[in-house]
């Protein structure tokens, strides 16, 4: 059976020139921005979290000092 849809697809792909490099550059740029933003978030999120803890009235330094004892006294 003839499939005009396939023929139409071929025809359209021949008639339209795809700006391949422009699209590739756009993808590279978008991914670059996303990576940059995620790096920034990764770097500063703990500090921002500390800031909110501080603003809520708690002492960030006190929170940090409550680390578990690495060498517990077993006696």
């Amino acid at each position: 059976m003839r499939n005009s849809f396939k023929e139409l697809e071929k025809e359209e792909m021949q008639n339209v020139s795809m700006p391949s490099d422009a699209i590739k550059k756009g993808i590279t740029s978008d991914i670059g921005i996303l990576k940059f933003v995620s790096t920034i978030v990764e770097m500063y999120f703990p500090k921002i979290a500390d800031l909110f803890v501080g603003l809520s009235g708690s002492d960030v330094n006190t929170q940090k000092s409550k680390k578990p004892n690495r060498y517990p006294d077993l006696n």
Binding site: E9, E12, M13, V16, M18, S20, A22, I23, G26
Partner: peptide
């Protein structure tokens, strides 16, 4: 990418929109 672009062009009817 050629097929994806072709489908976008066919549905969106604009080269600029298809590129985006």
């Amino acid at each position: 990418s050629p097929k994806v672009f072709g489908k976008c062009f066919s549905l969106l009817k604009s080269e600029a929109k298809a590129q985006d």
